[in-house]
Design a protein around this nucleic acid. Structure first.
Lengths: 297, 297
DNA sequence: TTGAAAGCGCTAACAT
DNA sequence: ATGTTAGCGCTTTCAA
């Protein structure tokens, strides 16, 4: 033991893995790290697993089903002990090509994935969007438009559903003409959708709800461009808080951050699965966040 | 071979690593992934190494020297074949505790690291800041203030140096009172520094140069809050482009993106080092980007 | 309590 | 061209 300490001996990891049949590595498959959302989650996951001397192998899915299968295959080929996967709702049923996946501890986050069973950690999208819509309704908005993400992503579909439920609960019938679907990974999607919406429905809109922070940022640009004032001419709220929330004028109303909670919950769940435990929670855990009212509404 | 294909056989990675003494894994040690900058770099690196069937082990350094040493130790203990490390300029000389590091292919990015020799891929900070300062000077600004990051980060120090050189080249002597150093990882640093600067130097400042995009975002908030108009009252430019550049009003003047180029250059360099080659480039590669003039100046 | 040995799955060197 | 075997560094079992 003295000699061990003296020479700073560390077990060789490949040999150890081979013997104990554990690589002490988890895989994190994620569509992108450009906007900080998954980055924060990655940091939380890594921080959690580091304590258990696990490494985090990161892998980008390129946001198409081919890329997702390829990423998972790549993680499996590296014999990770478990996987956290953020699917992008693009086509399901193609995961049967990965028979090893069925036996691997698997936690999915952010979106549902058709034909892939595992444990889920998801935002409570419907609840959150209802919170936002209720807030707009309570402040007096009646003609609320919605700009959301592509409906094949379950998170986008659930957010739209929350919007619809909130309107109906207030005796309003959601109108298709007030709903826009856009590419919610880029600011430009929100810009286009907002410009389009406000030109078609000129004067008929008194508030806009955005499905995520990218869309809201695009919306801000469009609204500023049209010379409209928030919240006087138009009340605005978005689902998740932009990381630049502090420098936007006016500060947008949104929900609170959930990255840490999603990351930590997923990491703990995966660790329990790897240890062979039976998690007490259901197969699906929903994370809720509360309303942060800003100057935009 | 038919049987191999039929059963979709994949060599077991731990056994293979043990035998060939290569893990086919590289490590990426990075201070954070919250703002997309390192996220983009990570994606580029992973995309490059994926072709060579290498996995990317990611590791967060927590931005203090203790955390950095700990992260590198953790990567070394996993026997990665090479490391890409983004140091944060916090204290040097503590890396002697890691004797294995000396023999490991190592590429450093973004900042210099005292007492750690490896190959560097860095932004040409001095050149870039000169480009920005020259632009402001040419448009007629004479009282240009500078809000930058902590000087222990070489990138921050070099940017400040570029600012000074540009002023001197135009016959102006940089004044200490016009220079602020702030925590450039958070928007609030730029907000505080700008507020402070503009209240102390009221009327004496006609332009502000920001050391990075976080600082610039904070500056925007402060400038909007004071009711100043860009560029009429104050011309503004920042070093790197905020990822929300498209939704800021006015669009900020900044340099172009370098994430892909830094990531790809570092990845190629590391791959060559791992292969045992002698890179043709020098020990230090500088990436330049050009000026993107926006409405803020 | 301490020591010896088998074997995890693979690759490379060697023998046929 | 094909088949056989030693051994990578570790853990675990079994023996002294």
């Amino acid at each position: 033991m003295e000699v061990v300490r003296k020479h700073a001996f560390t077990p060789q990891w490949a040999a150890q893995s081979l013997r104990i049949r554990r690589t002490h590595t988890i895989g994190f498959a994620v569509p992108n790290l450009t906007n900080g959302f998954f980055g924060q989650i990655a940091m939380t996951i890594d921080a959690h697993f580091r304590q258990a001397r696990y490494g985090t192998l990161i892998c980008f899915t390129a946001k198409d089903y081919r890329g997702e299968v390829e990423s998972l295959r790549s993680l499996l080929s590296k014999d990770v002990d478990g996987i956290i996967f953020a699917p992008s709702g693009c086509g399901g049923g193609h995961f049967q090509d990965l028979p090893q996946l069925a036996e691997k501890p698997l936690v999915l986050i952010d979106n549902h994935c058709e034909g892939l069973d595992g444990w889920y950690v998801l935002h409570d999208n419907c609840y959150g969007m209802k919170l936002l819509a209720d807030h707009l309704l309570e402040r007096g908005s009646r003609r609320i438009a919605f700009v959301g993400g592509p409906l094949q992503e379950s998170s986008a579909a659930e957010r739209l559903e929350g919007y619809r439920q909130a309107l109906r609960a207030h005796g309003l019938e959601p109108e298709e003409a007030m709903i826009r679907v856009a590419d919610w990974d880029q600011v430009n999607g929100g810009y286009q959708a907002t410009t389009d919406l406000l030109s078609q429905q000129r004067g008929r809109v008194d508030a806009v709800l955005y499905g995520n922070s990218q869309l809201l940022l695009g919306g801000y640009k469009a609204i500023h461009g049209l010379g409209l004032r928030m919240p006087a001419d138009l009340a605005v709220a978005g689902f998740d808080p932009p990381y630049v929330i502090d420098s936007l004028v006016p500060r947008p109303t949104s929900l609170g951050k959930v990255e840490e909670e999603i990351g930590l919950t997923a990491a703990r769940l995966l660790q329990e699965l790897i240890a062979g435990g039976k998690p007490a929670s259901g197969r699906e855990i929903r994370i809720r966040s509360d309303l942060l009212i800003g100057g935009s509404s």
